[in-house]
């Protein structure tokens, strides 16, 4: 049913998205779908990498690592932004189209009152795309 799964990841917080990663791996195996791991990195040096190129390299390595986990084809997509905090949602939405994904699997937090004024990234993606979105909440 699904051919290409887009999984937005943050290499600085891999532990926080572990459930989303396992879910996407299970779905990839089940549907024999390709998984594209995407990340948005800053132009300025950050925790994971000191240059956008270093981040890209780490993301590629991460994607190959995941391929070993679920055995399906993987790819990676690293986008460089001067202000990821603000641009993340828009860049994920663009990536859905660019890579031709038909399912997005992403981690999100539990619902909270603040979402009314500051919706979560998952919230924004789900309400702004035509493809299916699977939001994985913490256990």
């Amino acid at each position: 049913m699904f051919k290409k799964i887009l999984v937005p990841v943050d290499l600085a917080h891999i532990e926080a998205i572990q459930r989303a990663l396992s879910t996407s791996a299970d779905l990839a195996r089940h549907y024999e779908a390709e998984v594209c791991y995407m990340a948005v990195t800053t132009s300025t040096p950050g925790t994971v990498a000191r240059t956008p190129e270093e981040y890209e390299q780490k993301l590629e390595a991460f994607a190959s690592g995941q391929e070993a986990v679920h055995g399906q084809k993987t790819s990676s997509r690293c986008i460089n932004s001067p202000d990821p905090t603000a641009d993340l949602d828009g860049l994920i939405l663009k990536s859905i189209e660019a890579v031709g994904a038909d399912l997005v699997v992403m981690a999100t937090h539990l619902p909270r009152h603040l979402d009314a004024v500051m919706p979560s990234h998952g919230d924004r993606i789900a309400s702004h795309t035509d493809v299916s979105v699977f939001l994985v909440r913490p256990a």
Partner: peptide, 11 residues
Amino acid sequence: GGKVDSPKPQR
């Protein structure tokens, strides 16, 4: 600490 991708509520 020089991070420009800190959470939104901070800014």
